[in-house]
Amino acid sequence: MLQVSNVTKNYGDTKALDSLSLSVNSGAVFGLLGVNGAGKTTLLSILNGLVKMDAGKIEIFGLDVIKDRAEINTISSIIPQHLAFYENLTVKENINFFASLQKASKETVTNAIEINSLEGLYAHKASTLSGGQKRRLNIAIGLLNSPKIIYFDEPTVGIDPRSRNEILDSIANYKKLGITVVYTSHYMNEIERICDEVAIIDKGKLVKQAKLDDLLSNRSSDKIMIETVYSQKLSALGLQLLDATTIETSQKELPELLHLLEQNSIFIKQIRYGSTNLEKYFLEVTA
Protein backbone atom coordinates (compact mmCIF):
# COMPACT_ATOMS: atom_id res chain seq x y z
CA MET A 1 0.00 0.00 0.00
CA LEU A 2 2.98 2.34 0.46
CA GLN A 3 5.30 1.91 -2.48
CA VAL A 4 8.42 4.06 -2.74
CA SER A 5 10.24 3.53 -6.05
CA ASN A 6 13.64 4.97 -6.94
CA VAL A 7 13.13 8.23 -5.09
CA THR A 8 15.94 10.75 -5.37
CA LYS A 9 16.21 14.11 -3.64
CA ASN A 10 19.15 16.50 -3.78
CA TYR A 11 19.74 19.62 -1.71
CA GLY A 12 22.33 21.38 -3.84
CA ASP A 13 25.31 19.05 -4.01
CA THR A 14 24.04 16.93 -1.12
CA LYS A 15 22.19 13.75 -2.02
CA ALA A 16 19.53 13.33 0.66
CA LEU A 17 17.85 10.33 -1.01
CA ASP A 18 19.60 8.22 -3.62
CA SER A 19 17.26 6.09 -5.71
CA LEU A 20 15.54 4.80 -2.59
CA SER A 21 12.92 2.07 -2.87
CA LEU A 22 10.91 0.38 -0.15
CA SER A 23 7.42 -0.89 0.45
CA VAL A 24 5.17 -1.05 3.48
CA ASN A 25 2.26 -3.45 3.79
CA SER A 26 -1.16 -2.29 4.86
CA GLY A 27 -1.69 -2.54 8.62
CA ALA A 28 2.02 -2.94 9.40
CA VAL A 29 3.98 -1.10 12.02
CA PHE A 30 7.03 -0.19 10.00
CA GLY A 31 10.25 1.08 11.54
CA LEU A 32 12.42 3.50 9.62
CA LEU A 33 15.96 3.57 10.94
CA GLY A 34 18.97 5.67 10.11
CA VAL A 35 21.56 7.91 11.65
CA ASN A 36 21.04 11.68 11.64
CA GLY A 37 21.21 12.91 8.06
CA ALA A 38 20.48 9.45 6.63
CA GLY A 39 17.39 10.76 4.81
CA LYS A 40 14.54 9.69 7.13
CA THR A 41 13.13 13.20 7.61
CA THR A 42 13.46 13.98 3.89
CA LEU A 43 11.53 10.80 3.08
CA LEU A 44 8.81 11.66 5.63
CA SER A 45 8.63 15.21 4.22
CA ILE A 46 8.20 13.87 0.69
CA LEU A 47 5.57 11.38 1.83
CA ASN A 48 3.66 14.25 3.46
CA GLY A 49 3.95 16.64 0.52
CA LEU A 50 6.19 19.08 2.34
CA VAL A 51 9.15 18.55 0.02
CA LYS A 52 9.13 17.65 -3.67
CA MET A 53 11.25 14.74 -4.86
CA ASP A 54 13.58 15.19 -7.82
CA ALA A 55 12.91 11.78 -9.31
CA GLY A 56 11.03 8.55 -8.58
CA LYS A 57 7.48 7.59 -7.78
CA ILE A 58 5.51 7.08 -4.60
CA GLU A 59 2.07 5.58 -4.24
CA ILE A 60 0.06 5.51 -1.04
CA PHE A 61 -3.01 3.28 -1.16
CA GLY A 62 -2.80 3.51 -4.95
CA LEU A 63 -2.74 7.32 -4.92
CA ASP A 64 0.11 9.27 -6.47
CA VAL A 65 1.92 11.30 -3.85
CA ILE A 66 2.11 14.39 -6.10
CA LYS A 67 -1.01 14.27 -8.26
CA ASP A 68 -3.35 13.11 -5.50
CA ARG A 69 -1.81 15.17 -2.71
CA ALA A 70 -5.05 16.67 -1.40
CA GLU A 71 -6.72 13.26 -1.24
CA ILE A 72 -3.70 11.65 0.40
CA ASN A 73 -3.75 14.38 3.06
CA THR A 74 -7.20 13.23 4.10
CA ILE A 75 -6.04 9.65 4.75
CA SER A 76 -2.57 10.23 6.12
CA SER A 77 -1.20 12.07 9.09
CA ILE A 78 2.19 13.03 10.43
CA ILE A 79 3.09 13.27 14.10
CA PRO A 80 6.03 15.64 13.98
CA GLN A 81 8.93 15.41 16.37
CA HIS A 82 8.25 19.00 17.46
CA LEU A 83 5.09 19.71 19.40
CA ALA A 84 3.12 21.11 16.51
CA PHE A 85 0.24 22.75 18.37
CA TYR A 86 -0.44 25.99 20.22
CA GLU A 87 0.97 26.22 23.73
CA ASN A 88 -1.19 29.22 24.58
CA LEU A 89 -4.42 27.40 23.77
CA THR A 90 -6.10 24.83 25.98
CA VAL A 91 -6.21 21.15 25.03
CA LYS A 92 -9.85 21.62 24.05
CA GLU A 93 -9.12 24.68 21.91
CA ASN A 94 -6.25 22.89 20.17
CA ILE A 95 -8.33 19.80 19.48
CA ASN A 96 -11.30 21.87 18.28
CA PHE A 97 -9.10 23.98 16.03
CA PHE A 98 -7.42 21.07 14.28
CA ALA A 99 -10.69 19.12 14.18
CA SER A 100 -12.38 22.05 12.41
CA LEU A 101 -9.64 22.15 9.78
CA GLN A 102 -10.18 18.47 9.04
CA LYS A 103 -13.95 18.44 9.50
CA ALA A 104 -13.55 15.66 12.08
CA SER A 105 -16.70 14.01 13.40
CA LYS A 106 -17.53 14.11 17.13
CA GLU A 107 -16.84 10.40 17.32
CA THR A 108 -13.37 10.80 15.81
CA VAL A 109 -12.57 13.61 18.24
CA THR A 110 -13.76 11.53 21.20
CA ASN A 111 -11.68 8.54 20.05
CA ALA A 112 -8.55 10.64 19.62
CA ILE A 113 -8.98 12.06 23.12
CA GLU A 114 -9.71 8.69 24.72
CA ILE A 115 -6.88 6.82 23.01
CA ASN A 116 -4.46 9.42 24.30
CA SER A 117 -6.02 9.74 27.78
CA LEU A 118 -6.63 13.47 27.46
CA GLU A 119 -10.14 13.58 28.95
CA GLY A 120 -9.09 15.07 32.28
CA LEU A 121 -6.83 17.63 30.65
CA TYR A 122 -9.38 19.22 28.36
CA ALA A 123 -9.46 22.60 30.11
CA HIS A 124 -5.71 22.77 30.72
CA LYS A 125 -3.56 25.19 28.79
CA ALA A 126 -1.18 23.16 26.60
CA SER A 127 1.85 24.98 28.02
CA THR A 128 1.03 23.63 31.50
CA LEU A 129 1.04 19.95 30.42
CA SER A 130 3.89 17.59 31.23
CA GLY A 131 6.23 16.40 28.46
CA GLY A 132 4.34 13.12 28.08
CA GLN A 133 0.94 14.83 28.04
CA LYS A 134 2.14 17.22 25.37
CA ARG A 135 3.34 14.29 23.27
CA ARG A 136 -0.07 12.65 23.65
CA LEU A 137 -1.82 15.84 22.55
CA ASN A 138 0.54 15.99 19.56
CA ILE A 139 -0.50 12.44 18.66
CA ALA A 140 -4.21 13.04 19.29
CA ILE A 141 -4.18 15.89 16.77
CA GLY A 142 -2.74 13.50 14.20
CA LEU A 143 -5.67 11.13 14.66
CA LEU A 144 -8.35 13.71 13.95
CA ASN A 145 -8.66 12.85 10.25
CA SER A 146 -9.07 9.11 11.03
CA PRO A 147 -5.91 8.33 9.04
CA LYS A 148 -5.24 5.05 7.25
CA ILE A 149 -1.52 5.69 7.62
CA ILE A 150 0.36 7.62 10.31
CA TYR A 151 3.96 8.74 10.22
CA PHE A 152 5.61 9.11 13.61
CA ASP A 153 8.77 11.19 13.59
CA GLU A 154 10.57 10.33 16.84
CA PRO A 155 7.47 10.79 19.00
CA THR A 156 9.06 9.83 22.31
CA VAL A 157 11.93 12.30 22.41
CA GLY A 158 12.44 13.85 25.84
CA ILE A 159 9.73 12.14 27.85
CA ASP A 160 9.69 9.95 30.95
CA PRO A 161 9.65 6.09 30.71
CA ARG A 162 6.02 5.82 31.87
CA SER A 163 4.76 8.21 29.17
CA ARG A 164 6.94 6.48 26.58
CA ASN A 165 5.43 3.18 27.55
CA GLU A 166 1.90 4.55 27.21
CA ILE A 167 2.64 6.01 23.81
CA LEU A 168 4.21 2.78 22.55
CA ASP A 169 1.23 0.80 23.81
CA SER A 170 -1.17 3.12 22.02
CA ILE A 171 0.84 2.83 18.78
CA ALA A 172 0.76 -0.95 19.05
CA ASN A 173 -3.02 -0.65 19.32
CA TYR A 174 -3.28 1.12 15.95
CA LYS A 175 -2.36 -2.19 14.35
CA LYS A 176 -5.56 -3.64 15.80
CA LEU A 177 -7.49 -0.76 14.22
CA GLY A 178 -5.92 -1.53 10.84
CA ILE A 179 -3.92 1.70 10.74
CA THR A 180 -0.54 1.51 9.03
CA VAL A 181 2.26 3.06 11.05
CA VAL A 182 5.61 4.32 9.79
CA TYR A 183 7.75 4.92 12.83
CA THR A 184 11.14 6.61 13.10
CA SER A 185 13.14 6.65 16.30
CA HIS A 186 16.67 6.58 17.60
CA TYR A 187 15.59 4.19 20.34
CA MET A 188 16.19 0.70 18.92
CA ASN A 189 14.39 -1.01 21.77
CA GLU A 190 11.21 0.91 20.81
CA ILE A 191 11.49 -0.31 17.21
CA GLU A 192 12.10 -3.83 18.44
CA ARG A 193 9.09 -3.60 20.71
CA ILE A 194 6.44 -2.29 18.30
CA CYS A 195 7.56 -2.83 14.71
CA ASP A 196 6.87 -5.82 12.47
CA GLU A 197 9.24 -4.76 9.78
CA VAL A 198 12.15 -2.34 9.49
CA ALA A 199 14.06 -0.49 6.83
CA ILE A 200 17.53 0.83 7.50
CA ILE A 201 18.58 3.86 5.49
CA ASP A 202 22.12 5.14 5.27
CA LYS A 203 23.34 8.09 3.17
CA GLY A 204 20.00 8.21 1.37
CA LYS A 205 20.11 4.57 0.30
CA LEU A 206 18.22 1.55 1.56
CA VAL A 207 20.65 -0.72 3.37
CA LYS A 208 18.19 -3.37 4.48
CA GLN A 209 14.46 -3.98 4.61
CA ALA A 210 13.22 -7.09 6.41
CA LYS A 211 10.77 -8.50 8.93
CA LEU A 212 12.15 -7.76 12.36
CA ASP A 213 12.07 -11.40 13.41
CA ASP A 214 13.97 -12.46 10.29
CA LEU A 215 16.52 -9.75 10.87
CA LEU A 216 17.27 -10.65 14.45
CA SER A 217 16.80 -14.43 14.51
CA ASN A 218 19.65 -16.70 13.63
CA ARG A 219 18.47 -20.21 14.44
CA SER A 220 21.70 -21.82 13.28
CA SER A 221 23.47 -19.98 16.05
CA ASP A 222 24.02 -21.50 19.45
CA LYS A 223 23.55 -18.07 21.02
CA ILE A 224 20.36 -17.05 22.77
CA MET A 225 19.30 -13.55 23.73
CA ILE A 226 17.09 -12.87 26.72
CA GLU A 227 15.50 -9.47 27.05
CA THR A 228 14.41 -8.69 30.61
CA VAL A 229 12.38 -6.04 32.37
CA TYR A 230 14.87 -3.55 33.80
CA SER A 231 16.18 -4.51 37.23
CA GLN A 232 19.11 -3.16 39.21
CA LYS A 233 19.89 -6.71 40.33
CA LEU A 234 20.78 -7.81 36.78
CA SER A 235 24.12 -6.02 36.60
CA ALA A 236 25.16 -7.57 39.93
CA LEU A 237 24.75 -11.16 38.67
CA GLY A 238 27.97 -11.15 36.62
CA LEU A 239 26.25 -12.18 33.37
CA GLN A 240 27.29 -11.30 29.83
CA LEU A 241 25.06 -8.31 29.01
CA LEU A 242 24.51 -6.77 25.59
CA ASP A 243 22.86 -3.75 27.15
CA ALA A 244 21.18 -2.87 30.45
CA THR A 245 18.35 -5.38 29.93
CA THR A 246 19.61 -7.96 27.41
CA ILE A 247 21.59 -11.07 28.31
CA GLU A 248 23.53 -13.19 25.85
CA THR A 249 23.80 -16.89 26.65
CA SER A 250 24.01 -20.34 25.02
CA GLN A 251 21.48 -23.19 24.81
CA LYS A 252 23.57 -25.16 27.27
CA GLU A 253 23.51 -22.44 29.91
CA LEU A 254 19.87 -21.52 29.38
CA PRO A 255 18.18 -23.67 32.11
CA GLU A 256 20.60 -22.51 34.77
CA LEU A 257 20.24 -18.89 33.72
CA LEU A 258 16.43 -19.04 33.78
CA HIS A 259 16.62 -20.43 37.28
CA LEU A 260 18.95 -17.62 38.36
CA LEU A 261 16.62 -14.99 36.96
CA GLU A 262 13.66 -16.56 38.72
CA GLN A 263 15.52 -16.62 42.01
CA ASN A 264 16.26 -12.90 41.68
CA SER A 265 12.71 -12.07 40.56
CA ILE A 266 13.89 -10.66 37.22
CA PHE A 267 11.11 -10.84 34.65
CA ILE A 268 11.71 -11.94 31.07
CA LYS A 269 10.21 -9.99 28.17
CA GLN A 270 11.56 -11.98 25.25
CA ILE A 271 13.82 -14.94 24.39
CA ARG A 272 15.33 -15.08 20.93
CA TYR A 273 17.81 -17.21 18.99
CA GLY A 274 20.91 -15.47 17.66
CA SER A 275 23.36 -13.06 19.18
CA THR A 276 22.17 -9.90 17.49
CA ASN A 277 19.88 -7.21 18.85
CA LEU A 278 18.69 -4.43 16.58
CA GLU A 279 21.18 -1.88 17.87
CA LYS A 280 24.08 -4.23 17.26
CA TYR A 281 22.79 -5.08 13.80
CA PHE A 282 22.20 -1.40 12.97
CA LEU A 283 25.72 -0.46 14.00
CA GLU A 284 27.13 -3.29 11.89
CA VAL A 285 25.30 -2.39 8.69
CA THR A 286 25.76 1.37 8.97
CA ALA A 287 29.41 1.25 10.04
Binding site: N73, P80, A84, L101, I141
Partner: peptide
Protein backbone atom coordinates in the same frame (compact mmCIF):
# COMPACT_ATOMS: atom_id res chain seq x y z
CA UNK B 1 7.81 32.00 13.96
CA UNK B 2 6.66 29.67 16.74
CA UNK B 3 4.29 28.04 14.26
CA UNK B 4 7.08 27.67 11.74
CA UNK B 5 9.71 26.44 14.19
CA UNK B 6 7.41 23.88 15.80
CA UNK B 7 6.33 22.62 12.37
CA UNK B 8 2.74 23.69 13.02
CA UNK B 9 2.67 25.44 9.66
CA UNK B 10 3.97 22.25 8.03
CA UNK B 11 1.28 20.31 9.87
CA UNK B 12 -1.34 22.75 8.59
CA UNK B 13 -0.01 22.20 5.06
CA UNK B 14 -0.54 18.47 5.46
CA UNK B 15 -4.13 19.27 6.42
CA UNK B 16 -4.69 20.91 3.03
CA UNK B 17 -4.37 24.46 4.37
Amino acid sequence: INERKQNTLSRLTTMNV
